[in-house]
Amino acid sequence: MSVLVYAENLQGKFKKSAFEIVSFGAAIAHEKNLPLTVLSIGQVAEEELLRLATYGAVKIMKVEGEAFHALSDQTVATAIAQAAAADAAQYVAMTASFSGKAIAPRVAIKLKAGLADNVIDLPKMSDGFVVKKNAYSGKAYAYCEVLSDVKVISMLPNSYKLVEDQKQAAIVPFSPVLGAADTSVTIRETIRSADKVSLPEAELVVSAGRGMKGPENWGMIEELADVLGAATACSKPVSDAGWRPHSEHVGQTGIAISPNLYIAVGISGAIQHLAGVSSSKVIVVINKDPEAPFFKAADYGIVGDAFEVVPRLINAAKNFKAGQN
């Protein structure tokens, strides 16, 4: 028996969220007194694989080969389910990334297991197995008990800290057997902006709304994000108007995020916007209207014109960064 974590890589590298889920799996393994196995799929160098042991993996199952170059959700789900069966895993955990969300429910059904999706904290394990999730678009939390013997868990990025726990890990190759249904999706094209911080995983986010007046004014938002190493986001009307891509739209009908710091510029703070950002740890609001509802949901508020305040913040951020080095 074991705890099995699927660590997703992006072009051969593990992101922070992969180490978060390994740390999370290690905590369950510790509580349940089980060994922690981490599964990696696709081409990853040995040196990179061994980084998984830094966070507590004692066994690293690696799946490589041609069929695993361009990964469809079905291929990955089949590989995870077979690895879990081979390892007699009782707990199977992965990140609720875009692809993780499309994989975890399949794994649960393949393993006839209960699914705890999008969890945001370590489960309560003293009496049963009770997970915490967001509900009602960030307006509430739901606690849900998983009753099945085998449990599949997906966790949102930025929900669990990195915990170092260096182990000696063995790397074990594993070869899943794919069926016709696993390869019915053809990936025609993948477009990624490699230099940009991915929004759901970002620790810092600079977001702007209709108060910016037009897409030509986003230069200062991008510069502030750049200096801070933050991702950029926007309100819904901004992406609806085509000022920014839909992938930046946060809120109830956009992406829900929980960064350490969320800076909102020229966003009024409508309830649907707050739904997607209110689990940010610290919120800074910049708005020229002192009555803007967003101030009620903020930790720090600056009343002022974005066109004057943001350039000052860029300077402040530069000085702050310089002071850190």
Binding site: Y143, Y300, I302, G304, R312
Partner: peptide, 27 residues
């Protein structure tokens, strides 16, 4: 496979701290 247990609401934030637009250097 699963059973709903309970709900809970996020803790309300402490009151907002206003920072003057002329004094953001140390934000």
């Amino acid at each position: 496979h699963t059973r709903h247990h309970s709900f809970d609401k996020p803790a309300t934030r402490s009151a907002v701290k206003m920072v003057s637009a002329d004094a953001v250097e140390q934000l």
